[in-house]
Amino acid sequence: MTRAVQELQDATDLIDELAARRLGVNRTDLRCLSRLTARGPLTASELAAAAGLTGGAATTAIDRLERTGLGERVRDTADRRRVLVRLSERGRRAVREIWGPIAADAQAELLRFTDTELDVIETFLRRALDNQARHAGRLRGATEGG
C-alpha cells in the first residue's frame, strides 16, 4: 500500500511538472492555479495562505499569472475595495484541457466502488492529507528555524 501511495505521488508530480512546462509557469504558479481552481476567486492574502506562500511571493506569482494570461486581478463586486485574483478565461480553458480528462477518468473509476468503499477511500485521503499538511509544517519550521 505504501508503495502504491508513493507511486501515485510520483505520477502526480510528473503531471504537475508537465503541466507547468506546457503552461510556461513554474511550480509555485501552478500551485496558485490549483488553489484558484479549487476555491474560486481569492484575495492575494487568501491565495498566499492557501498556497503556503508569503505575501510577497504570492504577489510575484500573481504578477506572473497575469503576464501569462492565466490569471487576473478583479474588483470584488460585493466590496469594491477588495481585489480578487481569479483564473482568466484562458486559465479556465487550460485547466479544463489539462486536468479535465484526468478528472473524468478518475470519476469513471470511482463509479466502480460501493458507497461503503468510497467512504473508506475518502477517510484514507483525508487522513493522508492531514499527514502531508502536518509534515509540510514540520519541514517549513525546520527550514525557517535553520
Rank of each mutant, 00 (worst) to 15 (best):
E109D: 13
Q107K: 07
D105M: 11
A104M: 13
G52A: 05
R75Y: 01
R80Q: 11
R86W: 04
A44W: 00
G52K: 11
L87T: 10
A44G: 03
A57Y: 00
L87Y: 09
L111W: 07
T116W: 07
P101S: 07
E97Q: 13
V95T: 14
R96K: 13
T77P: 11
R67N: 05
R80I: 12
R96L: 13
Q107W: 11
A106K: 12
T54W: 03
R92H: 09
V95R: 13
T116E: 15
T116Y: 11
Q107R: 12
F113M: 14
D79F: 03
I102D: 06
T114P: 02
V95D: 15
A57S: 08
R64L: 00
A103G: 08
W99S: 05
D115A: 15
R73T: 02
R67A: 10
I102Q: 10
R92V: 07
T77H: 08
L42M: 04
G71S: 07
T68I: 03
G56W: 02
R64T: 05
D76S: 13
E109Y: 09
A51L: 01
V120A: 15
T59S: 12
V85Q: 06
G91S: 12
L84V: 03
R81K: 10
V120H: 11
E66Y: 01
A50W: 03
A48E: 01
A108Y: 04
D105W: 07
L118F: 11
L70D: 00
F113C: 10
A49N: 06
T77Y: 09
T60A: 12
E66N: 05
L84R: 07
A94H: 06
E46A: 06
T59G: 12
A58Y: 05
I98E: 08
L42W: 00
D79G: 04
A104F: 12
I98C: 07
A57L: 01
A50D: 03
G91T: 11
L111Y: 05
S88H: 08
V95M: 14
G52S: 08
A103S: 12
L70P: 00
A104E: 15
A78L: 06
E97Y: 08
A94E: 14
S88Q: 09
L84W: 03
R96E: 15
A58G: 02
E97R: 15
T60W: 02
E72A: 02
A57M: 03
G55S: 10
I98W: 05
L70S: 01
G69K: 07
T114Y: 04
R90D: 15
V120W: 08
A58K: 06
I102W: 10
A94M: 13
P101V: 01
E109I: 06
E66G: 04
R75W: 00
W99D: 05
L87H: 10
L42R: 00
I62D: 01
A94I: 07
R73C: 02
G91L: 08
D79N: 14
D119G: 09
P101Q: 10
L70W: 00
R73H: 01
D119I: 10
L111R: 15
A104R: 14
L87Q: 09
R73A: 01
T54I: 04
L47R: 06
V85A: 05
G71N: 04
A106W: 08
A61W: 01
R112F: 05
A57R: 10
A106N: 13
L84P: 03
T59D: 07
R80S: 15
I62H: 02
Q107S: 12
A50V: 00
